[in-house]
Design a protein around this nucleic acid. Structure first.
Lengths: 350, 350
DNA sequence: TTGAAAGCGCTACCAA
DNA sequence: TTGGTAGCGCTTTCAA
C-alpha cells in the first residue's frame, strides 16, 4: 500500500479511501490509484484491516458431524457470504461433547464477525440444552450468531430452520389421505433436537385431530447411526402385537427409513403393499432405493443462505433489530414407497 | 494483554512469551500469568498475532461442488487442522469457471497460510489444465498448497489422492475373477479429472494384460449429473449390438452406477443375474440400493487428513523438502450387485 | 478532496 | 529470565 501511494504520488490514507470506495475521493484519483494497485499486484491485507477496523470479514460455523445435510446448508451459507467478501470458517462439533464451547472460543479468538451454530441436542432427562448457560453468555457478549436447523429453548435469537412441525403434519396427512389409519412414527429418543421434537409433535397433532391413535415407536436400544436404529425399530415392530396392525410408518429421518426398509426386505415384506414407508429429510439416496422413498425434502441450501443473510444483517446492520425466526417450508416428494402410484417415478418426475 | 501484564506486574512481552510457551520464561511466572489471563477472560487476538508474525493459522480449501465426497475430505482435513489450532476457510469453485482463481486470490487476501486445492478438470480438447499458468504462478509465489484427489499435470507439488489406477485394476480383476469377460467401463469424457483418467487407464491395463478387449463406454450425450449419464449410457448399451454381449459394467463413479441400475430396472433386467454392476467411490447410498452396490471405497477422510498434514509440514517445516505424492489405497467392498454371494450382506458385514 | 499521524494487539528484537 | 520498544499494514480522526 505504501508502494502504491508512492507510485501514485499520494498518501497511504488516500489509497485506503480509494480502495474502500469512499465517496470523498475524486473519481479520477480513485481510478488512477486502482490502476496502479492492480499493476503492482497489490493485495489488501485483511489481517491488518481487521485489526484496525475490528472486523475480520469472516464467519464461523459450528455444526455436528459432517453429513450431506450439513454440507448443503454450509454450501448455501458460503455462497451468500462469498458475495459479500466474507469467508466461512468450518468446525465440526460432534454432539454431546463439550467441544462445542471450545470450538466457539477458538473461533472467537480468530475474531470471527459472527457465528452460524447448530446447537447440540437437548438433554432428554433434563429437557434443556446442556450449553444454555454458555449460549446465554455468548449472547450477552453481543457476538452476532444464528442458530440453524435447531435452537436452544429459552433463548430468543436469530434462527433459521425448516418448518419441521408443518412438514410432519403434511407427511402424516399424506399417509392418511392414502387410506392409512394405523400409522407409526419411528424416532430415536436418545438425542432429540428441537427439530426432531417438532416432527414428533406434528405427527401426533394430526393423528389426534383425526381421532387416530398415535403410535410413537421408539428405537430404544440402538444409539449409533440412525440407520441401525431404523432397522431395529422395524424388526421390533414386526414382532410386536400392536405393531403387526400397523400399515404405514413415518420415519423421523431418511436414514432411519432406509434401515427400516432393509428390515422389511429381510422379513420378506413388500413395500408399499405390505407396509407403506415414508422418510424425512430429502436425502439424495432416497431416490435410488427400491422402491424410491417418499419423503419430506428440506430446503437445506435455503436454510444456509437465509442463515448467512440474517447473520450479515445482524453484523452490518442495526444490532438491536428484533430477533427473527425464519421457518422454511419443506416439500412433499412423492415416490413409490407409499403406494398410490402406478409406477416408480422416473428421475426428474419426483 | 496489557491488562494481564499490569495485573501480573510484568511487561506485555513477558505475557506474550508466557502464552506462547516460550522456554525462556520461568515455569512459575508462566503459571501465574496464565492464571491471571484466565481470570480476566483474556483471549488472544489472532488478527494482531497474524499481522505481526506473518501467519494467520488458517488454511483455505477450494473444492468443486458440495458433495458427500468433498464433505468427508474436508472433515478429515478439519480434524487435523483443529489439532494444531488451525482453521479451515471454505470455498466451493464449480468446475469450468474462472472462479477457482478468484477464490484463491480472495483467500490469499485473507492471508491464509496455505491452500488445499482440488484443481478443475483437464480440458479434454487441449489435454491440459486450463489454469496451469495460474498454478505455476502460485507455486512461484511460494504459497504452500496441496492438491487433493486430482492434480495438475506438469506441476510437481504436494499431492494426496486415492490410488485410482490400482483401485480400477482391482475392480476390474474382481469382475474377471467372477467369470466375466465382456466388461464395459462407463465414463464421461466431458470432464476428465486426472483421477478419472487413471481409473480408465487402470481398467484398460488389466483388460489388455488378460487379453480381453476393453469396452470403454462413453456417456456421450448427457453432461449434467453423473447419474443421468449412467442412465443414458446403460440405455445405449442395452440397445447396442456390441453392448448386448456385455455381462458386467464397471462405472467410473457410484452415482453413474446408480443411474445405470435404474436403467437396468426399467429395462426389466436382473442385477446381478443379467448384468453385474460395480461402482466406484464408496458413496454411502450404494449400501441402500437393491441390490446393494459392490464398489471401490475411497479413503475420503484419510485423504483430507493427509492433505492437511502435508500442508502443515510445508507451512511449519522446511519449505524446500521435496514434494510428496501420497496415494492411499481404496478398498474393495463386495456387496450383491456383482453376484457371487448367496445373499445381500447385512449392514456391517460388508 | 487529500495529507499527516495515531494506534489496533501482538511478536520480535535487543538490552538489561 | 525479563523489560522496553519498534513496527506489522491498515483505518480513522483531524487538520489542511
Amino acid at each position: 500500500m505504501k508502494d502504491v501511494a508512492r507510485r501514485a504520488g499520494v498518501d497511504v490514507s488516500t489509497v485506503s479511501l480509494a480502495i474502500n470506495n469512499d465517496p470523498r475521493i475524486r473519481q479520477e484519483t480513485r481510478e488512477r490509484i486502482l490502476v496502479i494497485a492492480r499493476e503492482l499486484g497489490y493485495q489488501r491485507n485483511h489481517l491488518a484491516r481487521g485489526l484496525r477496523s475490528g472486523k475480520s470479514f469472516t464467519v464461523g460455523a459450528v455444526v455436528g458431524y459432517q453429513t450431506a445435510f450439513w454440507g448443503e446448508v454450509l454450501a448455501g451459507a458460503q455462497s451468500v457470504l462469498a458475495q459479500h467478501e466474507y469467508h466461512l470458517m468450518l468446525d465440526y462439533a460432534p454432539d454431546a461433547t463439550r467441544q462445542e464451547e471450545v470450538q466457539i472460543e477458538a473461533l472467537k479468538a480468530k475474531r470471527v464477525d459472527g457465528l452460524i451454530i447448530a446447537p447440540s441436542d437437548v438433554d432428554p432427562q433434563a429437557g434443556i440444552n446442556p450449553h444454555i448457560d454458555y449460549y446465554r453468555a455468548l449472547f450477552n457478549e453481543q457476538i452476532p450468531f444464528v442458530f440453524v436447523d435447531r435452537f436452544v429453548p429459552g433463548l430468543d435469537t436469530d434462527y433459521v430452520a425448516a418448518d419441521n412441525f408443518s412438514a410432519a403434519r403434511q407427511a402424516t396427512r399424506h399417509l392418511v389421505r392414502l387410506g392409512h389409519r394405523k400409522i407409526a412414527y419411528f424416532y430415536s429418543p436418545h438425542r432429540m433436537s428441537t427439530s426432531q421434537r417438532e416432527r414428533l409433535d406434528g405427527y401426533q397433532s394430526v393423528m389426534r385431530e383425526l381421532g387416530l391413535t398415535p403410535i410413537p415407536w421408539e428405537a430404544a436400544r440402538a444409539r449409533e447411526h440412525r440407520r441401525q436404529e431404523g432397522l431395529e425399530a422395524m424388526r421390533d415392530l414386526l414382532q410386536d402385537k400392536l405393531g403387526r396392525s400397523v400399515t404405514a410408518v413415518l420415519a423421523s429421518s431418511d436414514s432411519m427409513a432406509m434401515g427400516a426398509l432393509r428390515a422389511l426386505h429381510d422379513a420378506g415384506r413388500e413395500v408399499p403393499d405390505d407396509m407403506a414407508l415414508m422418510g424425512f429429510d430429502g436425502a439424495e439416496a432416497g431416490e435410488y432405493l427400491e422402491p424410491p422413498l417418499t419423503t419430506m425434502t428440506l430446503p437445506m441450501r435455503a436454510i444456509g443462505e437465509q442463515a448467512a443473510g440474517l447473520l450479515l444483517d445482524r453484523i452490518n446492520g442495526d444490532k438491536s433489530t428484533p430477533y427473527r425466526h425464519i421457518l422454511l417450508p419443506a416439500e412433499l416428494v412423492v415416490r413409490a414407497s407409499c403406494g398410490g402410484l402406478k409406477h416408480a417415478p422416473r428421475p426428474g418426475e419426483g
